[in-house]
């Protein structure tokens, strides 16, 4: 039996839109309030900033889908009223949302969506003359600047948490820079490499997420001393290196995410969470040991259920729009953490 992929797509989109509607209703106040409070000139960017923060959040949820803490929406700084904890998960959220904003702005700047984008005033003379004389700075720089202005504007205080958030947002933007691809084109005499021009290309956001996840695993605990952040004494090293801009930092240890503690730690516990024992090359390490981490280490049992799913298969794809698939029945093993 064939079904047109359109129906599948419609379902997915309805789900996405419903989800968005829900989240907008719940959180729109803070987001709008923030976006409106920005400088007037930057109103054009607000849609991109919101989309970027959203992309950051989605990436966060993807990266942590097999971890005890699974990046609940409430942890996004733009969406929450309360002051969140200052642990390493918070630091990841700040970094990824700042990176998401930068990534989206850079992309949209390349698409020519902004009236003002990317001409550096540090170059000679007037802006128009600068463009004619020596071109303009790259879109990545523009994305970085605007992201900095927007995200850093959220931190009004000068306390330890504010400093930590600023540092982590900076680390998020550095992550976008670190994952840029440098591409070169030779176009000299007869197409030789006597003239070569290079540029930086942004990669898919997943790569930024992976980069930041690695940084999260090596996040450094810091102390707040004399108005600045200092590397905490972890006991391992006596000679402390200086704080690296690219590293994530945190002030407090993470709570026990096995237990439900929404008010203080923002933790919902792991009861009922899915885990996976998929054994393929592309399965991440965290996915392979997810049942161990999510269930067993929290004193829960892994419950196995086999369910039958209708999936699309043997699809005939074009590069866009039209999909012709067959529907197949597939038995899938669902593993959940359960008390009994």
């Amino acid at each position: 039996m064939t079904c047109s992929g359109q129906q599948v797509n419609v379902l997915v989109w309805t789900a996405v839109i419903t989800l968005c509607m829900f989240s907008i209703q719940a959180y729109s106040w803070t987001l709008n309030n923030f976006l409106m409070s920005g400088p007037k000139a930057y109103l054009t960017f607000s849609a991109s900033v919101a989309a970027g923060a959203q992309a950051g959040m989605e990436e966060c949820q993807h990266q942590y889908q097999w971890e005890k803490w699974n990046c609940p929406r409430s942890s996004l700084p733009l969406y929450s009223h309360s002051t969140p904890a200052a642990n390493s998960e918070t630091s990841f959220v700040h970094a990824i949302s700042s990176a998401g904003v930068m990534h989206t702005l850079t992309r949209n700047c390349s698409a020519g969506e902004f009236e003002k984008c990317g001409c550096d005033d540090r170059k000679k003379g007037q802006v128009a003359a600068g463009w004619t004389w020596g071109g303009c700075s790259d879109n990545v720089q523009f994305g970085e600047q605007i992201s900095k202005q927007f995200v850093d504007a959220l931190e009004t205080g000068l306390d330890a948490t504010a400093l930590m958030n600023l540092h982590n947002s900076e680390a998020g933007r550095a992550a976008v820079r670190q994952t840029l691809k440098r591409v070169c084109k030779c176009h000299g005499v007869s197409g030789s490499c006597s003239t070569q021009t290079c540029w930086l290309q942004i990669t898919e956001f997943r790569q930024v997420g992976n980069y930041l996840k690695r940084k999260y695993h090596r996040a450094q605990r810091v102390d707040y001393k004399n108005g600045e952040l200092k590397l905490g004494n972890t006991g391992r090293m006596e000679e402390l290196p200086s704080l690296n801009k690219r590293d994530l930092v945190y002030l407090e240890p993470s709570p026990d995410y096995c237990r439900t503690n929404i008010t203080e730690a923002g933790s919902v516990g792991t009861v009922g969470r899915l885990c996976s024992r998929r054994k393929v090359d592309s399965a991440h390490r965290s996915e392979r040991k997810s049942c161990k981490v999510l269930c067993k280490s929290c004193g829960l049992k892994v419950r196995k259920r086999t369910i039958e799913l209708l999936t699309s298969c043997n699809c005939k794809f074009q590069w866009c729009c039209d999909v012709k698939c067959e529907e197949c029945r597939e038995t899938v093993e669902k593993l959940t953490c359960s008390v009994i």
Binding site: K116, G118, Q126, A128, W131
Partner: peptide, 10 residues
């Protein structure tokens, strides 16, 4: 070219 900062269209 894409629009850029400045008074007129580059």
């Amino acid at each position: 070219p894409n629009p850029m900062e400045g008074t007129r269209e580059p």
